[in-house]
Each structure stands twice: as C-alpha cells, then as structure tokens.
Amino acid sequence: MSNIYYSQTHEYVRVDGNIGYVGITDYAQHALGNIVYVDMPEVDDDVTAGEEFGAVESVKAASDLISPVSGAVVEINEHLIDNPRLVNENAMENWIIKVELSDKSELDELLDEAAYKALCESESAH
C-alpha cells in the first residue's frame, strides 16, 4: 500500500510515520502553469484538514492550498521561497509543508493513487 494520499482539490500528503509531507500534485502544477510564488504558513501554525493553509500563484491566477490533514506545521520548504518553480519541476519531490499528523484516521477520507488518477482523467475530459 502506497504512503501517498490525495485530496479532491489536488493536494497530496506523503506519510512517513507521524509526519506528513504536503504539496500539490503534478496535475495541479501543470494546470497552474509557471508558479511564481508559494504562500506558506509559519512553523508551529496548526493546519486543519479541509481548510486553507496558503496559496500558489502563477502570473495570472492564484489557487488556495487546502490541507488534506490536520496537525502542526513542523517545517516549511524554504527552497520554495527563492525558487517556487521547483514545484513545476517536480511537484511530488518538492513538498510545501511538513505536518505532524494529529489524526491519522483522516487519511481514510483521502483518495489513493488509482482513485486520484481517475479524478484527474474525469477533470481533463471537460
């Protein structure tokens, strides 16, 4: 079973023990185009599943980041401050925040890879 889970709003969380690495999917980065800014929370902030924790901006659009999980932010990806395009280059590698998960049962509400793939296919069909 994979340790990566997906949300309907195109964020992922890669789980490693009690830690979740949250970012946006390759599909999402592609839809946004050239990313010029990632608005991130601060370390020690709490994020809540289903709620906004930041935003990614391209030149002419901005997309809210919705956290797939709840917990405290233990680290933000500081590389993205100077080089937000890393998300375009490799979205899965370049996570945005690292969260200490407060409720792992939330993962059950998320999509697995197959379900997420199906979601993307149905969205691109429009």
Partner: peptide
C-alpha cells in the same frame, strides 16, 4: 513591443 515575459517579471 511584443508580448512581455510576465513570469520573469513576477520572479
């Protein structure tokens, strides 16, 4: 002028 590079401007 022709189309400007908006991405470079933002970065």
């Amino acid at each position: 002028i022709s189309r400007p590079d908006d991405t470079a401007a933002a970065l």
